[in-house]
């Protein structure tokens, strides 16, 4: 009978089998030794990897939930929310507020429970609670991811000089209490700007540098004061956080988050067929998702500007943007 081709697999020799067995055992031992030698490095790499993944996820949560107030770069928006990407925040903040835990715990506590108080604050919005354990929208692991993302600014923030530090001064930042009036020694223009902006946005009952702002009397609201000035709106609503009004939008130089607005008038009329410049800019403010400039992301620009400004104010802002 002719042997089939696969008869090479009919190994009968016990020596061959024992030999295979010995080789297999030795190879297995060598492989496990290799793992033994590399295991510590592997665990370190894995640890770093999961932290990195957490930061990645935190980034997308930050853009979706936090950036509209704290700024896409985390440097805060004047009067809207404080900076996180700040040297002061990373080096001094918890000491100043008298928090005894770590910065990580401080950030986690703030995100988890928010700062749900409208009393004695100069900010336009309050920090909402975020954890779903206390009525917020995020799961606990998502809060942790956000914490990891915020703390990842440390390297950048600690490299800031005091002038670059975007921290805004407000009531409980004790270390940065600075003179308020231009006559006093050490008067800082930045402080004055911050106060002016805060007042323009209608913040009440706060204290900057030890000076309490007086609450406006009844009827002194938006309606009574008439339309707010477009440049104030641009600052107080945080537009400047993403749009640079002093730079042109060209192929070489694009705004990193939102388009630069320096040369808005040049191309506002040609972005969308059938819309002139005014209509286009107006629509972009009221309904940002209607048209998104190529290269930018939809959903980043807040959708609620129509609620924050009167129609007159929007018209004024459009005019000011196009003529700037």
């Amino acid at each position: 009978m002719r042997k089939p081709w696969y008869s090479i697999f009919y190994v009968k020799s016990p020596i061959a089998k024992i030999g295979l067995g010995i080789l297999a055992v030795l190879a297995g031992i060598v492989l496990v030794l290799f793992l033994m030698a590399t295991e510590n490095k592997r665990m370190d790499a894995q640890t770093a990897s999961w932290e990195g993944r957490s930061i990645e996820k935190g980034a997308s949560l930050f853009i979706a939930n936090c950036a509209s107030c704290h700024g896409l770069d985390g440097k805060g928006l004047p009067v809207v929310a404080p900076a996180l990407n700040s040297r002061y925040f990373f080096s001094q903040r918890i000491d100043d507020v008298g928090f005894t835990g770590s910065l990580k715990q401080y950030v986690k506590g703030t995100i988890h429970s928010g700062r749900p108080s409208k009393v004695s604050t100069q900010w336009v919005n309050i920090m909402p609670t975020w954890s779903n354990q206390v009525g917020g929208p995020l799961r606990e692991d998502q809060v942790d991811q956000l914490v990891d993302f915020v703390l990842n600014w440390e390297e950048e923030a600690m490299a800031q000089t005091p002038e670059e530090d975007p921290w805004q001064f407000f009531q409980d930042s004790l270390s940065k209490q600075l003179p308020y009036s231009p006559d006093e020694p050490g008067y800082d223009e930045k402080v004055a700007e911050a106060i002016a902006a805060a007042e323009a946005a209608g913040a009440v009952g706060y204290e900057i540098g030890g000076v309490a702002a007086e609450a406006p009397t009844e009827g002194e609201g938006d309606a009574a004061a008439g339309p707010r000035a477009p440049e104030d709106l641009f600052a107080s609503l945080g537009c400047a956080g993403c749009h640079n009004i002093n730079a042109d939008q060209t192929d070489e130089s694009k705004g990193p988050v939102g388009p630069n607005l320096g040369n808005l008038a040049d191309h506002a009329g040609s972005r969308v067929d059938g819309e002139d410049a005014e209509t286009y800019v107006h629509q972009s403010i009221v309904d940002p998702g209607a048209f998104v400039v190529p290269g930018y992301m939809n959903g980043v620009m807040p959708q609620n500007f129509a609620d924050q400004m009167s129609e007159d104010e929007i018209q004024g802002l459009v005019e000011w943007l196009l003529s700037h």
């Binding site: 932290e51 990195g52 993944r53 930061i55 990645e56 998104v292 930018y296 992301m297």
Partner: peptide, 29 residues
């Protein structure tokens, strides 16, 4: 941060666009 932006014309010549952003950390494997 990696922003993906894809643009196209559909059968009737209307422009469409799709954006998606992802982040990538140096250490993540």
């Amino acid at each position: 941060r990696l922003d993906w932006d894809i643009r196209w014309l559909d059968a009737e010549g209307v422009e469409g666009s799709f954006q998606r952003s992802f982040w990538l950390h140096k250490d993540s494997l």
